[in-house]
Structure formats: C-alpha cells, structure tokens
Design a protein around this nucleic acid. Sequence first.
DNA 1: ATGTTTATTGATTGACGCGTCAATTAAAAA
DNA 2: TTTTTAATTGACGCGTCAATCAATAAACAT
Lengths: 190, 190
Amino acid sequence: MPKLGMEPIRREALVTAAIAEIGAAGSLDVTVSAISKRAGMSSALAHHYFGNKDQIFLAAMRHILAGFAVEVRSRLSMADTPRDRLTALVEASFAQSCFDPEVISAWLNFYVKAHSSPDAMRLLRVYQHRLRSNLIHTLRPIAREPEALADTIAALIDGLYIRAALGAVKTNDPASAILAFTAPHLEDER
Amino acid sequence: MPKLGMEPIRREALVTAAIAEIGAAGSLDVTVSAISKRAGMSSALAHHYFGNKDQIFLAAMRHILAGFAVEVRSRLSMADTPRDRLTALVEASFAQSCFDPEVISAWLNFYVKAHSSPDAMRLLRVYQHRLRSNLIHTLRPIAREPEALADTIAALIDGLYIRAALGAVKTNDPASAILAFTAPHLEDER
DNA sequence: ATGTTTATTGATTGACGCGTCAATTAAAAA
DNA sequence: TTTTTAATTGACGCGTCAATCAATAAACAT
C-alpha cells in the first residue's frame, strides 16, 4: 500500500530503531534485520533507503548530534555571563536527552567505530570541535589558560559518560561535580 | 613437531597477537584466524587452548590489567607522601605501557564489550575498584571529600584515554594536566 | 617396540548476515 | 483507462566465521 512521501518517515523510524537496538545490545553487533523489524519493515527496505548498514549507523549518530546541538543552543541562549554560559555548556552535556542509556551506548560505540570508519571519525570531530570552541570562547574572559582548561573539561565530560554507560553512576549530578571541580581555576570577576 | 609444554607459550602468543590485531583493526571485529595467523598457528589450535574467541579477548584484557597493576605497584612503592602517591597513581595511568595505541584500543573496545559480557564487566569492575580504592586511600589525608575527588579523577583519566585513542592528543602530558587541575582541591600540608 | 599423551592442522560443518533482485501493490499522472 | 512511478518484500546468493573433528606426528613411558 504505497503512500507517497514515505522516505523521511522510514528513515526516522530506522534511525530510532537503530539507536534502540544498539542500546539494547550494548554494541554495534546489531543486524539490519533486527533494526528493520523493530522499525516495522523489511530489511530490504532499509537497504533501499540507506544503502548499507554503516549509513544507518551514521544517520543515527547524526540524529543524536543534532539533538545535542539543539540542547546546547537552547541553554546557551538563556545565559548571559561567562559563568552562566559555562554552566549551560556543561549541563547540556548531561541533559536528560544525552543521558538516556540508549544514547550513551550509541556514543560509546561510535567512539570505537570512529577508529575504523573515517566517516564516523569526521562526525566525532565535528562534535568535539564544536564543544571545544564553545568552551574556549566561554572560558576566555574568566580563565588564564582557556584552551588547556577546555580540553580538561571536555575530557572530564567524556569520562563521566563512560562511567554512566558502565552503570557505576551513583554520582548525584555530574554537571555540578564538574563545575565544582572547575571553579578554583576561574578568575575572580572584577 | 610437538614439543612438550607448549601451552603457556601458545597462550601468550595468542594474547599478544590478539592485542595487536585489535589495535590494528581498532575494533573487536577480529577473526580467530587472523589472531592465530599472527601468532603463528592454526585457528584450531587457538580454539584448543582457549575454547572460544571471548576467552581470548578476556585473557588479553587480563594480561593488560596485570601489566597495569605491576606499573602501579612499582610506582607506589617509591612514593612516601600522599602527594607523591597521588602523582604515582596518575602517572601510572599514563605510563608508556598504558599509552601504547594497541593497549588504548583494547581498553576502549573492552569498555564496550563489558556492556554485553558479564565476564568482561567483572574484569572492568576489578580495575575500577582497585583504582578507586587506591585513590581514596591516598586522598583521605589531603582532601576534604576523598570519594568525590577520587571519582572525578578516575573519570578524568578515562576521558583522557578516549581522547588519546581518538588521536587528538596534542596535550603535552595528561598526568601533569590532571595533577595541576587537582591541586586546588588538596588541603595545605600542616 | 608398543602404547599413551600432547601438539597440531586441514578440512568441514553449520549458521548467520549483508546486500541484491525480480516481482507485487497501489497511488498518482497522463 | 492506461501508464508511470514510488513503496515494499520474499527469497536467495555469496561470503564469512566460529567451532568441531578426524588424522598425523612427535615426545614420553613401560
């Protein structure tokens, strides 16, 4: 029963299903069949729209990245002072949407995937560069070494992600932990 | 040409080869054949000694963990003050042996593997718990909240590992970055 | 010598999964 | 109504890979 304009609907369904499957399996060892089944279609259709499995994974990651970008912009727009901007950036990294186990699992797996897939690596670089730029720009007025501090904060975010993915999250709030840890490195406002 | 007592030699060769293969591929998508070939034997022999592929991976990770433990003990034994002990712990995490790209790749992949393999998860918990205990014990005399600080430092170590694995390491020395970042949270010696 | 144990592998099996393709359906266009 | 076009799938070919097994060969024991 072919209705027209199914492509975007199918693509989104597949992307969502892929993220869910990756989350359920905890790895990228997920078959196109399983993804398609969850998305309510045949695997042939998935191949028809995406070409191959890697493209599905990449689309899933792009989807997650886009969601994160929205989260960041939304929070940044409500921040005025550098300190508020820093808080916004860090809290965005641990927003509900990013902290979803499925999303964390996808992140972790795509980190590894980036090792062997130049396309995945490029996507990761986009995220990293954007976060780094945002942090440096925000820190410049209030930190002596904005670049070094930004790199440390970024690594800390990544590290807390891993710990969350491994279920060892008894930490109340990763964001406030980072901010408290960072505070001594910020200059007094004058 | 069966010489006797080959088992330990074969096992070590397979473990080393597995780490090399994982490092070369950047993922766990490595065939038993490839590992066996690199180790200079047939895949049947690998199965003979290890039973299945997962056991090879686990043995490889145990091997890496053991090497890390040696590194830690060695450096701890030469430290007297709490501050020296902290330096020893952090620097051990970024020792040459841990920073080897092959080893980093293995770590990253086994993080993911732990998601679906209880055995791998148990191994990771051993490492995490040991590091956490060491950090807390070391920090107790010089930090107000040893547990929270230990968790943050551990996450920071993990995060810097990822960045190293992704090749974005322009940072001079991760260890000194961590120590500098941690310094303000240590109490004055009295 | 003869038998037992250990080491070793080539060949094989069985399963699985990606990607393709021809065929089908039904909406839209002519 | 006829034709085109988008949507959709079942079946399948092809390759891959983990794991098994029977067979061979050398060391050791008696």
